[in-house]
Design a protein around this nucleic acid. Sequence first.
RNA 1: GCCAUUUUAGCUCAGUAGGUAGAGCGCCACCAUGGUAAGGUGGAGGUCACCGGUUCAAAUCCGGUAAAUGGCUCCA
Length: 648
Amino acid sequence: MSQINLTFPDGTVKQFDSGISVQEIANSISISLGKKAVAGKFNDQAVDLRQALVADGAIEIITKDSEEGLNVLWQTAAFILNEVLADKYPEMNFGEAHADEHGFYLDTEKPGQAQLAVTDFDDVSAAMQQVILANEPIEFASLSQADALKLAGNDPYQKELVEELTVDGQVAVYQHGDFTSLAYAPVLAATGKVKIFKLLSVAGAYWKGASSNPMLQRIYGTAFYKQKELDAELARRQEAHERDHRVIGNQLDIFFVDPKVGAGLPYWMPNGATIRRTLERYIIDKELAAGYEHVYTPVLANVDLYKQSGHWDHYREDMFPPMDMGDGEFLELRPMNCPSHIQVYNHHKRSYRELPLRIAELGMMHRYEKSGALTGLSRVREMTLNDGHTFVSPDQIEDEFKKILDLMIDVYNDFDIHDYRFRLSYRDPANKEKYFDDDEMWNKSQKMLKSAMDDMGLDYFEAEGEAAFYGPKLDVQTKTALGGEETLSTIQLDFLLPERFDLKYIGTDGEDHRPVMIHRGVISTMERFTAYLTEMYKGAFPTWLSPKQVDIIPVKNDLHLAHAKDLQSRLMAHQIRVEIDDRNEKMGYKIRQAQVNKIPYSLVIGDQEVADNTVTVRKYGEKETETMAFDDFVTLLNHDIETYSRKN
RNA sequence: GCCAUUUUAGCUCAGUAGGUAGAGCGCCACCAUGGUAAGGUGGAGGUCACCGGUUCAAAUCCGGUAAAUGGCUCCA
C-alpha cells in the first residue's frame, strides 16, 4: 500500500497509508482529539472527517469548540433546514447553504409563489426539531455528475452548483434518508449533533451575488451546542441594537430624518450639532497644525466641470440629475470636492516652492445613493466630508503619503479608535471599463502605495475592485455596531485629474511640470463619523465631545438654585456646556435622568457645597461621588477636555 | 434599485373576529419633596404614513405610493 506524507500545523510530518480518513488521523493522535474532531482541513480546504486522503499535503483537525468547528455545526443546521424545506415544499429551488460570522443561511426560491416568510418559521423549526431528535446518521458519499444532475431535477441553481462542484466527474454529497444535499462544506455525522438552533430572519439575495441575476429568498439562522451560547448570541444582537447610532441618535436627540424633507437628508438637532461643531473645530485645528489651508467652495457647479473631471462619465449614477437653468446652463450638485479644489489650485500659477500645497475644506456634497442603501447618518445623500487635497511633485508623494498617515493615526489616538484595518484598494482588472483607462498609471500608483505601506511597517490587506475611478486608495476599514464594515478614512493617489485639468507648476528648471494629487479624508464625513463615534462610545461621549458636559442638581431649589446658577455662569465662562435641573422632582429622579442621558458629570449642590464652595461630583457610569473644591473641579474638567479624555 | 417585512400619541408599543382608539415613558398643571437611578393626582396630545378601492361601516380587508427595518447589489 502506498504511503502519503501529511504535515501537521506544528510542522511535523508523519507518514500514513494512502486512503486514511481524517477521523482515523485524529484518532491516531489521541482519543480525545478523535472525539472532539468535527472536520478536517486539507491544504487549507475544509474536508469531511470521512474524507479519504490519497495525496501529500497539510492536515489540520477542526475541533468542536473552535470557531471553524462552529461553522461545521452551522453547516449541519443549514443541511437540516434544507432537508425540511425540500420535504415541505417539493417545488422549492435551493441555492448554496453557508455559514457566516454568526450563523448560517440558505437561499431558497418558490417559483411563481409567495416566498418563505418569517411566519413559516414555527412550522419549519418544529420539523427541524424532529429531524434532530431522530438523530440519524448523515452519510458522506460521492455521486457521478450524471446522477447528481438527475437529483437536481428542474432546479436551475442546483444544476449549476453540481457543475461547479464536480471534481473528476464526481460530486461529493451528504445524504440523510431520502434527502441528498451537495456537500458545500463539512457537516456533522448525525442530525442529533445539532442541539440548539434558531431561525432568525429572511432577506433577498441575488443568485451568485450579481444584481443581474434572479433574487432568491435567504433564510438566516444560528445554532449552538448549548442554550447558554445561543442566549449569549441573542444578547449580543440585543447589545448591537442598543449601540446602533439610529437608536441612540433618537434617545439622545442627536439627529432625525424627516420623510417630508427627503430620505437620506438628516437634520442635526442641537445635541448632534454640538458634537459636529466640536469635531469640525478639532479637525480644522489639527489640519492647520499640519500645514493645510482651508477654503470654502460652492456646492453647485456647472456640469461642464464634472464632464472635464470624468465624474460625468464614471460617477453619474451616484449624482443628482443636473438642474436645467433654462438658458442653456446646467448646474450640478457636487458629488465630490476634488474638482472644486483643483479650481483653487488653478486660480494661480504655481511654483515648486508652494508644494506640497494642501487645500482642505469641510466640503458639503450630494450623492444620489440608492434608496435601499440609506442608513441613519452612516449612509446619506447629503454629507460634509473632512476633505483635503494635497498637490505634490512626484518625488514628494511618498513623504506626503506618510505625513497624512501620521495625521490619521494621531487623530485616531485622540478618539481612542483602535479597532480598524488598512485596506489597499486596487482597481478590478476584470472590469477595467469602470476606471480611467491608463494601465501604466494604475500599475505605478498601486505599486507606490504598497511600498509606502511596507516601508512604514504597517499591516494591510489588498482588495481588487475597491479603487476610486481615478486611482487606487488606502482605506481604513472599521466595523459598525451591527457588524458591517465601513470605510472611515481614505488616502487616494491621483495622476488622472491633474492630467485632465492640465495642472502645472514651475519647477527649479523654469519649466512646467505636472503635479500629483492626493485626496484624503481623515475623519470621514461628519455624518458617518458621528454615527461611528456614537456606536463606539455607545452614546457616552467623552467630556470634550459630549453635548452636555455638566448637569447641576440643587438639593432644594428654594435654598440652592441661586448658587447653582452662579456655578453655571462660572462654568459657562470656561466654555463648559452646563445645565441646571431645577424641575420639581426628587434628587434620585434627577440623578437617574443625568445617567440615562449619559452626561459626563453630575453636580449635587446642597448646604454643605454652598458653605464650602465645593461641588459633589458623580461621574457618568460610576456610583461613588467625590466632593471637591469648585476650582479643582474646573481643573479636572479642563484636563479632561484638553486630553480628549483619552485612556492613554 | 431588488426581495421580504413594517408604518397607531414626542418615544417604545398594545389593539383580539371590520362596528370611527389604548398603555408606559415624556410633556403640562397642582400637591408632596433636604443628599445620589423613577413620589402622588389630574390634564393635554392621534386625518391610525399617504392616495384609492371593497363594505351600511375600514387602524383592521384589497391595490398603489412613500418612508423605515433586515439583507442583496453599490459606497464616505
